[in-house]
Amino acid sequence: MILAILEPAKGALTEASWETLTAARDLAHKSNDSVTALMIGKGVNALAPTVKGIHTVLVAEDPRLDSYVPEAFAKIVSEVITQRSPKIALAPGTETGNDLMARVAARLNLGLATNCVEFSVEGGSLKRVTRSNWGGSLLEELEILSSPILLTLAPHAIAAQSADGTTPTVETFSVSVSEKDFRVRIKELIPTQKKGISLTDAKVVIGGGRGMGSAEAFKMLEELASLLHNAAVGATRVATNNNWRPHSDQIGQTGVQIAPDLYIACGISGAIQHMVGCKNSKKILAINKDPEAPIFQRADYGVIGDLHQIVPALIAELKKLKGA
């Protein structure tokens, strides 16, 4: 059996959960095995019927688990693994999924391969996985010696496919968590006020790096963004470390991952840790005064020159177009 651990959020399964189910079905298909999905939390009973094309859905419903309770969730997953002995247990490689599976791996003293992007099944069993290193800039082929095999799936590595066919049997897994499993718990949720277009939703992102030179200079990127539809401003680590921009604007391995239609990189050298955050952009346009800058090997369009001349000229031209 292959165990797929799914993530409910706001009354539905997350996209990463559907990707995980797809990967689990694929692994089961290649190893002639069946899939059991596990859902934990308050309200998961209602979600069970949304899953098709697998053998069993296990629901661990409990009103106390209305948000993620790390140690309680880890206890439940560990018990399911111990009682049902899956060959593989797979969860989404999201923040929650990685947190959960690392706790499970620690409890069961098993290896865990996080953020897998590919699986190699030979002769009906999983031999190796390929996982992301350096935030996706490198890939690592890994052999897992402990069993059962624990994995998380990197988000977007596999496209979610809907399955038809069999309606799974729904089984209840009785939850046996106690007060001490709640020593790590969410005390409060503070919603953030959404202002403007977020970096992850924007269709055009304008990024500024060391070449901007100051916090002041970012005002022209803000102005440029305001002249475009659906545009937002991002930054490199140099810009955030200099306090030119808040860290929430940082694109890259230790910042946000963006996937706009167009990324305009201004005064950015194209370090691998920055580019891994924007590699899913449809097109990348780089403005840099150094023709040898590595970003020109990782961009679709290049403009060689001083951004402090080019950006103002671009703004002036856009204003002219708007006025006309």
């Binding site: 890939l139 690592e140 082929e141 890994l142 052999e143 897992i144 010696l145």
Partner: peptide, 10 residues
Amino acid sequence: QLVRKALKKP
């Protein structure tokens, strides 16, 4: 528990 077999570039 885990053994690296190779690194590669995407």
